Structures are given as C-alpha cells and as structure tokens.
Simulated assay, not measured.
Amino acid sequence: MMASDLYAENSDVLAIFFDLDNTLIQTRKADARTCSKLVEVLQQEYGLPQDAAVESATTFLRAFRARPDDDTYGLDEWPAHLWRNSLPKNYRHIAKNISAEWINLRFKNLALTNDVIHLLETLREDYLLGLITNGPSRAQWQKIERLGLRKYFDCLLVSGDLPWEKPDQEIFLEACKKLNVEPRTCIMVGDKLETDIKGGKEAELGGTVWIPLQKDEESSDLPDFTIEKVTELPEVLPNSPKLKRTIAKVC
C-alpha cells in the first residue's frame, strides 16, 4: 500500500505523536555544539592544552550519551561526576564549574527553533498533539520543563515512567487511550526506524513519518513518508495541497 493510498482510506487524522530527541529538538547536534564550545572554555579560561580539552569533552560526551542520568546522583550532580572522570587529574577540581556551563549552554542549544514553535502552534489548531519519548524519567522531564514543552502537547509520555518503551506498541496505545482516539487516526513522527517507525506500525497507527538522522540512512521498515526535517510535516498531512495532488495522481 502506498502512503497516499493509506491516507486516502484514513483521511481523518485526529492526533500526531512526536518523538523528542533529534525530531523536535536536535539533541545530538546541540550536545556536540555545546561540547565544542566547552573545548574553547577549557583552553581559554582554565588553561588546558588543546589536545587535553578535546579529549576531555569527547570522553564526557561519549559517557553522557551512553548514560544520561543515574538516579543515585542528583540530576545536576551526574554530569559533574562525568566531567570529573573525563578531565585530567590535575583539573578535576573544575568539574563542577564546567558541568554548570554544560547544563546552561546545552539547554540554550536545545531550545525549540521559531520554525518548530510555529509548527506546533499551527498544528494544535487542527490536531491533538502527543509527545512519546524514550529515556530516563528525570533527564527527559528536565528537557520538557526547561524547554517549556508542556504547553504544546495534550499528552506527554516518558518511557522511564512506564512499563514500556518504544517500539512496544503499548506505549503508543497508551497515548491513544489518553487522547481518546483510535490508533488508525494517529500519525507517529520520529527519527528512529527501530523505535518510532517500527512501533508505530506495530501499534497499527494511521501513518508513520520518518526523519532520518543521517541523509544516507536506508529504511528496511518502510515508513509511510520520509521528510528531512520536522517543519516539512505539513507537506505530508492529509489536508495539504501536495498530498491531495499525490492522491489524485494515484486514483
């Protein structure tokens, strides 16, 4: 079944579910940009040699991506711990300061762009919106609160609070239940084939929209649509002129 055929049969889209990281916010790019800036800070303000600054930031980012939170530490204490383990021994006393700079600069880089804000505000006029994100509860809710995301969504689900995570169909069905909509009337938008797209299909949602993290990434679990960035989403929604033209050609 072609994507246009799918929407021709299920044109009553009521809800759109979004992934968070690397879909609505560019987490990997923002984190890399933040660490790049901290390399400069480590050199200019604390006197680390360039090689040591780069190695420290690279080691930190690798560890943080592998484990963004550890609930045996305070939420802001965990990155400080990772920085302490990443810095050369004679610079570990600055870990707390560098961690504070990491947190502040990171959330500036993670902030929703004006285009994405406009997208969400516009979509809310016609659709229910849900956020479905995998990850540790504290770390994901910190993003949601610090970035002011609550006001854009009718439903927010973080896998760390639940018995399931994407691609388990139950997390998608839970979102449908909270919004009182049928799965066939919902669309899932995300960057990961193995979680967002596979899970959306297994939950029998009305459609899936994939935003590849890398342009050369290939899809085995074929999404119904592929777009380059989330702001292109209106181009593949049922009421868009582009989609109507596609359906007309197929029919």
Rank of each mutant, 00 (worst) to 15 (best):
M1K: 10
M1Y: 15
A3H: 03
L6E: 07
A8K: 13
S11I: 15
D12G: 10
D12F: 15
L14Y: 06
A15I: 12
F17C: 12
D19C: 12
D21W: 03
N22Y: 04
I25Y: 04
T27E: 04
K29R: 00
K29V: 00
A30I: 02
D31S: 14
D31L: 13
R33I: 08
C35S: 08
C35W: 01
L38C: 06
E40S: 15
L42G: 06
Q44S: 14
G47L: 05
P49H: 14
A53R: 03
E55W: 15
E55N: 15
E55L: 15
T58M: 05
T59R: 11
F60A: 02
F60C: 05
R65Y: 14
R67Y: 00
P68C: 03
D69I: 00
D69C: 01
D69V: 00
T72H: 08
Y73K: 15
G74N: 11
D76G: 09
W78G: 02
W78Q: 04
L82R: 03
L82Q: 04
P88G: 10
K89D: 13
K89Y: 00
N90L: 05
H93G: 11
I94G: 04
F107P: 09
K108P: 13
A111C: 10
L112G: 10
D115M: 03
I117D: 02
H118Q: 11
L120W: 02
E121L: 14
L123R: 03
E125P: 04
E125A: 07
E125C: 06
G130I: 12
N134M: 00
P136Q: 05
R138D: 07
R138S: 14
R138N: 06
A139V: 01
A139Q: 06
Q140T: 10
W141R: 06
W141C: 00
Q142S: 06
I144Y: 06
E145H: 12
C155A: 10
C155W: 09
L156V: 14
L157T: 12
V158Y: 03
G160C: 03
D161P: 12
L162N: 00
W164K: 03
W164H: 11
E165W: 00
K166L: 11
Q169M: 08
L179V: 12
L179T: 12
L179E: 12
N180H: 14
N180Q: 13
R184S: 14
R184H: 14
C186I: 04
I187E: 08
M188R: 03
V189C: 10
G190M: 06
D191F: 08
D191A: 13
K198L: 10
G199W: 01
K201T: 04
E202S: 08
E202Q: 12
A203D: 09
E204L: 14
I211R: 13
L213S: 12
L213K: 14
K215R: 10
D221V: 09
P223V: 15
T226F: 04
E228Q: 14
K229T: 12
K229W: 04
T231P: 01
V236T: 08
L237N: 11
P238K: 09
S240R: 01
S240Y: 09
P241V: 13
K244D: 01
V250G: 01
C251H: 05
